[in-house]
Amino acid sequence: MPDIDQRFWKGRRVLVTGHTGFKGTWLTAWLDQMGAQVTGFSAAPPTQPSLFEASDLATRIDHVEGDVADLLAVEEVLARSRPEVVLHLAGQSILARGHAEPVETFRTNVMGTVSVLEAIRKVGSVRAAVLVTSDKCYLDQHKTCGEDDPLGGLEAYGASKACAEIAVQAYRSSFFPGSFTCGIASARAGNVFGAGDFAANRLVPDLARAFLRNIPPRLRSPDAIRPWQHVLDAVGGYLLLAEMLYERPEAYSTAWNFGPEAGSEWTVGEIADVLARAFGMQGWESAPALPVREEAILRLHTARARRLLSWKPQLTMTEALHWTAQGYKRLDRTGDTSWLGEQIELYRGRLQLRHLSGQTRDEPIELPILHTRTSGGGNHVAA
């Protein structure tokens, strides 16, 4: 995978929607480290505690709170900040909440995306826009899904993400056809995890809460397979795609999957076993399934990103889970968030070394291990 070009991002005007969420915080922190002029537009942090608040990112960027489905508010922030690059991550991201609150889920995920696209169309300053949806946007999830497969959803969350993808396609075809001035791409990532995620009904945060309290976690579907990946592999893909879109919008304005290497997918139970050892714990229990359809197997075909972006995951699952445990333990013990910048720097160092040496993903490079500190418990368990 090519190195993310700090020279491209330094001083670049960038709008990140959803910057107060888990994935948005990691992306914003990376952009901030590279010297980008970041404007963040999002609702208030969706969880308490919040990695965004703990990291104090609001003091280092132009932080704006608002409703992404409010077209006037989105247009106002784009007109004021005049971004050159837009990274749209705002949305309702929890499958179970989509079942409980379908109207709000469709409103946020569909009309939020439409509002961002309309504001981009009007402002005239944007050269590249990456709109993040989900791997759940595919109609048939019983096979390895590629970007050109039919979109759809049998529950509110997946259906709303499919609708968002259709909106991206419509705007790209109607208002940016064959565009040489503004690239419009969508990104469909697999199940992303990392330290600092505190969402309910999401596997790794639920496991971390349990392990920090020395309580055996409860797993709904221990044999389920998902395209797991560390958050830095996903947001690194978004940044790389944005760079390529900016330089060649006519060539990269399409949909992109970002997921693990074929055959490397892990089950929920395997994730729990490795993370337990990283926390010094053992064991888990079974829990009832959610009252919403959830596929047992979901895999992504990522050849497009690998071939045309030279993107590929940089962290093995074991590495990613150990980095995740280290961050959670340090945050839980002291409120320390310096590990966030440290992990971004280590990841960037890995990209630079592999890029300079021409090594492939399968050729290991020794990098320093982040310092591990013990911690006490204090988070709630969610089934």
Rank of each mutant, 00 (worst) to 15 (best):
L27Q: 06
M34R: 14
E53R: 13
T17K: 08
K23P: 02
A44D: 14
P45N: 13
P46Y: 05
A36M: 12
D32Y: 09
S50H: 12
D32V: 14
T17I: 03
P45Y: 13
F22L: 11
K23M: 14
G40V: 09
Q48R: 13
T20S: 11
T25N: 06
G24A: 05
L31G: 01
W30V: 04
T25R: 11
E53D: 15
T28D: 07
S42Y: 04
W26Y: 15
T39G: 09
E53M: 08
M34K: 08
L27R: 00
L51R: 02
T39H: 03
K23T: 12
H19S: 09
Q37P: 00
P49M: 12
F41P: 01
T47D: 08
G18R: 00
A44F: 07
W26F: 14
G21W: 09
V38F: 05
A43M: 09
F22G: 11
P49V: 06
H19W: 03
G24H: 03
F52T: 01
T47K: 01
M34H: 04
T25W: 11
K23N: 08
A44T: 11
T25D: 10
S42F: 03
K23E: 09
W26P: 06
G21K: 04
T39W: 01
P46L: 07
T28A: 06
F41Q: 00
T25E: 12
W30A: 15
G35N: 11
Q48N: 12
A44S: 13
Q33A: 15
H19N: 13
Q48T: 14
K23V: 15
T20F: 03
V38C: 08
S42H: 02
G35D: 06
F52P: 02
F22V: 12
P45W: 01
A29S: 15
D32E: 15
G18E: 08
Q48H: 13
A44W: 03
P46F: 12
W26I: 05
G21I: 07
G40M: 09
V38P: 00
G18M: 06
H19M: 02
Q33M: 15
W30I: 06
S42L: 03
F41M: 07
F41H: 05
G18H: 01
G40L: 14
S42W: 02
M34L: 15
E53I: 04
T47Q: 13
E53Y: 01
